[in-house]
Nucleic acid binder design. Structure first.
Length: 173
DNA sequence: CCAGACGTTGTT
DNA sequence: GTCTGG
DNA sequence: CCAGACGTTGTT
DNA sequence: GTCTGG
């Protein structure tokens, strides 16, 4: 997946493998890494703390799915997007993981938070979407204010979002 | 204090 | 009843 | 999470 | 490598 990060003074777009692998891991975990990190516990979790301190990124998307448990049926997917239809940015973390041998692998995870009112009927968690005015402070590795960074990780306003039930068969683009 | 975990709930 | 240690 | 502690260094 | 659970 493609994500924006800040290297030196420049914003860069880089390809990351979805599934963050902490630097100290010796081999690729069975799960393939951590695809989600909880906003509430980020700062204290060994696996995310370093990335949260200095390797934050933005993951561009135009929507996301949440899957609703429906009694006796397969899970029902719902599609969520901005009512403006504009693309947006998930708050993400990345790591450059060094395998025992071979080239480093860029890995990333998205951050989740409590669901807002539009997502809550479907699922209790949702990805953190950041508004454009905080992109700079989120991306800046020199930003050491963990408290303020944590405060950015809120559920996006439901009033600016739209949703629709999606049929799995039809969703292939 | 040391052994063992270290993360979330995605995918169909 | 509540805290602590394993 | 549940079992087991729940207290301090006084006195002879 | 560092934290947690026993």
């Amino acid at each position: 997946m493609l994500a924006l990060c800040k290297v030196g003074n420049r914003r860069e777009a880089e390809v990351f493998r979805w599934g963050l692998i902490p630097a100290w891991m010796k081999e690729v975990p069975k799960s393939g890494g951590f695809i989600n990190a909880r906003a509430e516990t980020l700062a204290s979790k060994v696996s995310f703390r370093d990335a949260f301190r200095s390797r934050r990124c933005l993951i561009i998307a135009d929507g996301f799915y949440e899957w609703q448990k429906v009694e006796g049926k397969r899970k029902q997917p719902w599609f969520f997007c901005l009512s403006s239809g504009e693309p947006f940015a998930f708050a993400g973390l990345y790591e450059s993981w060094k395998p025992p041998q071979g080239e480093p692998v860029n890995t990333c995870a998205i951050i989740t938070t409590q669901a807002n009112e539009i997502v809550a009927p479907v699922h209790d968690r949702m990805p953190v979407i950041l508004p454009p005015d905080v992109y700079d402070s989120w991306l800046d590795p020199a930003n050491r204010d963990i408290r303020k960074l944590t405060d950015l990780l809120r559920p996006y306003p439901a009033s600016e979002m739209a949703s629709r039930a999606e049929f799995p068969i039809l969703r292939i683009i």
